[in-house]
Write a protein that binds this DNA or RNA. Structure first.
Lengths: 205, 205
DNA sequence: ATTCTAGTGAACGTCGTCGTTCACTCCCAG
DNA sequence: CTGGGAGTGAACGACGACGTTCACTAGAAT
């Protein structure tokens, strides 16, 4: 593989004090997600994670026999639950709240790690990791949006035929795309803009 | 990096016959794009490309001093021009034709290679490569969609305020997202579905 | 205080890849 | 036909990362 000298990825997670058990595992998980977010799955190495967590490889290999197992466990431990769908009584407010939450999650470290995995989705090497992210992030996202839209249908704010898998995917797709193209920070792609310019026009009766 | 034994990526490009000059370069480019599409930028190696092109590393290094240079040249040589915007007189027909073209391009090997690059967009290692793909694929895509929508505005088929960068990004974002999640082959995400379920509802007056 | 176990840091042998070199050969142009 | 340059396949030394081992030590539990 690439022969570049790789600095430790992610951020160093604290003073070099001997840690044990759960404390050490949490530091390793944090380092793992940092490496994932910074460098993606392909470039993540056990040596890099160990260095970022300020521990030794032996401590990693005592727990996980492979990089994939480590990444799976780190994601399982750190990916937040999706939470309930907003129910404010207004479609626009629901969507803004939901997309604001999605956006914050996407910009968090676990979110950035999940994004890195999605970006390498067609890699056979990360199949199980991708499936975890699909189950824990992508599918719940689609469900929440579907739920909010369905409530809108019941209130007459949403055309019933607008609730399709394609429409449900628009917001996450846009957020990921804009983030990838480095446009995530611009004022044009906040939650309100996506709701007002894209989602509400799509679903309006 | 990952210590797996890597089979040659991409497809072998022909009989092991000595080739020279342009012929060899084209075989190398094809092998490069194949490796990009199959494995992405991170996992692409000079050794792998050389093996896939059935040539020697020396032949590669005589021309390109780095993996990045090689990938840049391969993409420059093989990414097709965007072509003109469709102008059928009907917004829907224009959009369907344009998105059909985009989809075909996306499923082609150069398109798959470009996709791999976009997916690693936040990688500092592929910055120049990403910029090439932005300039040759992403920006022209946005321009074509903008042009088609502007024509629709002139014909009264499109709300003028609907022509925003966000709206312009919806179709490519969706296509990439669905392709990444392995939903590209389903009947629900062809060009017509995206036009009818998403784009036309967004822009309708 | 003692015991036990997990953590540490270093070292190891192995492998894949890098970038380079080289002897030989092909093949094109004159 | 000849010369020159590009291509071939193999080999090389170096390096990063892998997965493993080990002597020592910290620190928790008793």
């Amino acid at each position: 593989m690439q022969k570049q000298a790789e600095p430790p990825c992610g951020r160093l997670t604290g003073a070099p004090v001997r840690r044990r058990g759960r404390v050490l595992e949490n530091a390793i998980f944090e380092a793992t997600l940092g490496c994932l977010a910074d460098s993606g799955y392909a470039w993540l190495t056990m040596e890099g994670v160990a260095a970022a967590a300020q521990t030794g490889k032996a401590a990693l290999y005592r727990r996980w026999s492979s990089k994939e197992e480590l990444v799976l466990d780190a994601l399982r431990a750190c990916l937040p639950p999706a939470g309930p769908a907003p129910d404010t009584g207004s479609l626009r407010a629901d969507l803004v709240e939901l997309l604001t939450r999605m956006r914050a999650a996407m910009l968090s470290e676990p979110g950035a790690a999940a994004r890195a995995v999605i970006n390498e989705a067609d890699r056979e090497r990360a199949r199980a990791v991708l499936e975890l992210v699909l189950a824990r992030v992508v599918d719940p996202t689609a469900r929440l949006i579907t739920e909010v839209l369905a409530r809108g249908v019941a209130r007459g704010e949403v055309r019933p035929e607008a609730v399709t898998p394609l429409v449900v995917d628009v917001a996450p797709a846009l957020m990921l795309y804009r983030a990838k193209l480095g446009l995530g920070a611009s004022s044009g792609s906040g939650a309100e803009a996506i709701v007002d310019e894209v989602l509400l026009p799509i679903v309006r009766p």
